[in-house]
Nucleic acid binder design. Structure first.
Lengths: 183, 183
DNA sequence: CGCACGGTAGAGCGATCGCTCTACCCCGGA
DNA sequence: TCCGGGGTAGAGCGATCGCTCTACCGTGCG
């Protein structure tokens, strides 16, 4: 039931991430999830719903992935960036799944909302960590800067590799936090 | 001749930028360029060639756009970032055309090369500006950081708007350069 | 045993895709 | 006046798309 749906969503996420949104037709998605076409459409009644399902699954998985970390200081604030580096290292990186979905479905309002929600939550995560470590800092400006580093890291990993891109992003993040009096 | 080809390439660039790569079929591209299907295929013998033509056109236009600027100092180094802000403000921003193309055609080696070439030239531009202003700086690490800000700015503009994203990127860039002793 | 249920396999629908090809038209030069 | 070249318009090809629907199968329960 929900278990089947979860298994399908996981497969959709993996396939869209590895092959992109344009390459995989519904029949290929069905085969990858190892279910019948009827069952696939039972839980995800349209291709757009399959994309949304994959994005929801990914949003959940990523939020879990970047949770926690050292309790305070710059390392606490930058923890999501460090974790993103590790994430990109084990996932074969083809850029950001959400931005790729936006590129593939520029006219879908539902997908646009899912992507925007994910990115908003991500920046809020940075804001929360900043305020936890330095309650008096300019959390709005700093979280915007860290969010920008996060996006840049995701895409730059395609060209420089995850390790180098993560090192660059972390170095820049530390510099920016240090200039704001956070260490 | 080459004039017709140029006009078609310009139209392809604009259409792919505004509507994305998945939305526009060849017939729509033809109509947008205001030529016959036969002529379109004469200069761009396949859909992939049309995409490559748009990317080449955009690469040229963007290189021209970010050329020049103040002769030295941090403002000289960061000039491409400032110009990108203005660029994104007049083009309706749907992210980076090159990354969108990569998302739409993950299996095309030719497109991958075109994108990689563009990004490599872009970072080389930063490196050149750094060495011109501060010959002894760590141009490799700094240009990687500025490139990352550039990519982040392009994508973050989707959510925060071009103006705010550009301000964030420029502020971060100045901080990073200042920490490296460049002002 | 008989039967309802939840699943599978996969043929087939109409629409659209990238691309080709035929038929036609306009215009400058002999 | 006639003709050839280079353009246009757009019908039509096979393939593939997202999606629906029919026919069938195994299993648990009365």
């Amino acid at each position: 039931m929900t278990e089947t749906q979860h298994k399908i969503a996981e497969s959709l996420d993996r396939q869209f991430a590895e092959m992109g949104f344009a390459t995989q037709g519904v029949e290929a998605l069905r085969a990858g999830a190892d279910v019948s076409l009827r069952t696939l459409y039972k839980y995800f009644p349209s291709r757009e719903a399959m994309v949304l399902g994959a994005l929801e699954y990914r949003d959940q998985a990523y939020n879990d992935w970047i949770a926690g970390g050292p309790g305070q200081g710059a390392a606490h604030v930058l923890y999501p960036l460090a974790r993103l580096g590790d994430w990109l290292e084990q996932v074969s990186s083809t850029g950001c799944l959400f931005l790729n979905a936006l590129a593939a479905y520029p006219d879908s309002e539902a997908i646009r909302q899912a992507v925007e929600g994910h990115k908003t939550r991500l920046q809020a995560q940075f804001r929360k960590r900043l305020l936890h470590t330095a309650p008096d800092c300019d959390a709005e400006a700093l979280s915007a800067a860290l969010f920008l580093l996060h996006e840049g890291l995701t895409e730059a990993a395609r060209f420089h590799g995850p390790k180098a891109a993560a090192a660059t992003a972390l170095r820049s993040g530390n510099t920016i936090l240090l200039a704001a009096g956070i260490k």
